[in-house]
Simulated assay, not measured.
Amino acid sequence: MPAPNQAALDFLLTRRSRPAKTLTAPAPSRDELMPLLEAAARTPDHGKLEPWRFIVLEKAALTRLAGLVGPRAEALGIPEDKVAKAHSQFADADLAVAVISAPVDSEKVPQIEQVYSAGAACLALLNAALAAGWGANWLSGWPSHDRTFVTEALGLAEHESVAGFIHIGTETCAPPERPRPDLDAKTSWVAD
């Protein structure tokens, strides 16, 4: 019988993202953020390919990104409600980490599995922040999928994309529990 880490299991069974709009300063300092990034970097990465990287966006950088949202949205004809939501995602934040999917050439590991690894890094960073007592949320939105925006705003290479923006800060209120999936409806058992 394996020896359980009950505290870790209890955390995973009760973890809950905190809405980014409820996060405020202070955000983690660089020293406080480093162990969270270390935890995220322990995600499965298919033979040390490390097909992801992190861009830490502090307040001034987030303000700059917020300023890029409007002109890009106008060029794309994005509806005003989506523009406001994308703008506030950056303007109202104190710290976010852009997790960048950065697949590498590999004969053994398909690109899609490398993209999954970047997603796993997002979840690992989110969980590490929550476990450390911070409020955290994983966001994306149309700017993260717009090639021009991510190139201009973040300097991404052509083969890179945003897996997610992990917002981290001080939680102002705990969100209520929400309905969870019906595991009987989502689980199949194959015995033979």
Rank of each mutant, 00 (worst) to 15 (best):
W189N: 03
A124E: 01
I166F: 03
L183M: 08
L154D: 04
V56R: 00
K82D: 01
F11K: 05
T63G: 14
V109L: 07
V150G: 09
P175W: 15
P79T: 02
P51W: 04
S29C: 15
H167T: 14
T148V: 11
R178G: 10
F90H: 00
I100W: 01
V115A: 05
W138P: 00
A96S: 06
P28Q: 14
T63N: 14
T63A: 15
S140M: 06
A120R: 01
L37C: 11
R42H: 03
P51T: 06
T14G: 08
F54H: 07
S17D: 11
A60Q: 15
A73I: 11
S140K: 03
L139P: 00
S106E: 10
F149I: 03
L12N: 07
A174F: 12
I100T: 03
T187I: 11
Q111K: 09
L130I: 04
A3R: 05
R53S: 08
A27F: 11
T172G: 12
E38M: 09
T148D: 06
L23Y: 12
L65P: 09
F11S: 09
R42T: 02
K186G: 04
K108M: 02
V56N: 00
L33K: 13
D45N: 10
P28W: 13
G47D: 03
N127H: 02
V150P: 04
A136Y: 01
P181T: 05
G169F: 09
R16Q: 14
P176R: 10
A174V: 14
E50N: 12
F54R: 06
Q6G: 02
D45G: 04
P28S: 13
G47Y: 07
T170C: 12
A121F: 00
R42D: 01
I100G: 09
K108R: 07
V83G: 00
V104I: 05
A27R: 14
S117E: 04
E152L: 10
S101R: 09
R18W: 06
W138Q: 01
A120M: 02
A131I: 01
T148A: 08
R30M: 12
V162H: 11
D105V: 05
K108E: 07
A20T: 06
I55H: 10
P44A: 08
H159Y: 12
A3S: 05
E58K: 06
T43F: 02
A8I: 03
S88K: 08
K48R: 12
H159A: 15
L125C: 03
M34T: 15
D146N: 06
L156V: 13
A191V: 10
E158Q: 15
T22S: 15
N127D: 02
G169Q: 10
E80S: 05
V69W: 00
L36V: 10
V56H: 01
L65Q: 11
P2Q: 04
P103I: 10
M1N: 07
L183R: 08
F90N: 00
A157S: 12
